[in-house]
Write a protein that binds this DNA or RNA. Sequence first.
DNA 1: TGATTGATTGAATAGTCATTCAATGGAGCG
DNA 2: CGCTCCATTGAATGACTATTCAATCAATCA
Lengths: 204, 204
Amino acid sequence: MARSAVQNEQMRDERRQAILSSAVRLFATRGLAATKVADIASAVGMAQGLLYHYFRSKEEIFVEIVRQAFDRMNTAARELERLPLTPRQKIERAATTLLRTLEEHEDFAWISVLISTASISDAVPAEATAIIRRERDVPYRVVARLARAGQRDGAFEGGRPDDLALVFWTTVKGLALHRLALGAAYKSPDPRILTRMFFPETRA
Amino acid sequence: MARSAVQNEQMRDERRQAILSSAVRLFATRGLAATKVADIASAVGMAQGLLYHYFRSKEEIFVEIVRQAFDRMNTAARELERLPLTPRQKIERAATTLLRTLEEHEDFAWISVLISTASISDAVPAEATAIIRRERDVPYRVVARLARAGQRDGAFEGGRPDDLALVFWTTVKGLALHRLALGAAYKSPDPRILTRMFFPETRA
DNA sequence: TGATTGATTGAATAGTCATTCAATGGAGCG
DNA sequence: CGCTCCATTGAATGACTATTCAATCAATCA
């Protein structure tokens, strides 16, 4: 065997990540169907055929992107919840972090939009649909729980926790769309616009 | 000539609208590329070839949808602005109307999502991109103007008018995505969650 | 009735693109 | 050196699908 098995696997993994990272942008801006395998290959800088050495199909690339995106987002959401902070601080941190990430890392916007559109598409692989169905409301539930906890503490009022969570996340998704539409010109709004939904008394 | 010219044109127009109305749903849920002309034809209940009697191409159908969507939305926005109401009342009416329409008319959500994704896609006809670029910030400007007017009156505070407009519309777009993801199960949140961004003092 | 016009069909065409595959290259190893 | 294993290439294949088109149909009117 050439090289060590471990080293081989690591190189293979890096290559797979490079493919995924190029593919996200293309899938998000063109959709699965309109993205040609040739486009992905040339974005990564490899021959078309080589893609099939790393992934079974174009669809498998798509599914892997969806899988990893939910892994990260849901892990982050659960970690935030476990932090030793008050509900209000957690909401504020979430809003601030999300808006900053949106501004600084275009990738985050791409992934977010990819998931949003995949959620309503019936032209994505069945496995992607299954992952989405299974995972999509984890972040909503986390925010709803925080809202409920904060309201119990009397730390803030606002509307029904489920409504708040819904508007919170849809706003983030909406901003991601906007961020891609504007490109580098995008500036995230003040996070207080978001948190004010939870704490009506906050002044700008 | 068979039939009167006027009658002919009216029938033709109704047929075109029927095609557009079926196509919106398909384009919004699958994207332009993944929507087959055969799909549209069978959704309308006509032969493939006949579509080409009413539109030059699949792309022309897409462009026409985009054109009509902006026509309606921007007309409505401008009319709202001209109504004899206070800025605050206008904002409230916009929020209420949008959230109700979203809940009651799935079509509105489809069109909204179609426009959102088309805005960031480089796989849509150049003409659609041009229309979007030209028209897209009309609604943002209207809301920003209302926010500014309201703040000048001292009727409400809140953040920077441009930020408010941004969050207002991206929330609506985000909710449209969510509405399609949930289908009939969707319920719009209380509009006060939206208006509270503009009027921090409002209690739920 | 026969002519004209627009609506409609579905099969043929032509182009595109995902996927496969036979062949080449190169790195370590005995 | 010769062997093995993986990475890599790009041309060939096969499926799919937008668009065209020749032909039929239906309604009106002179």
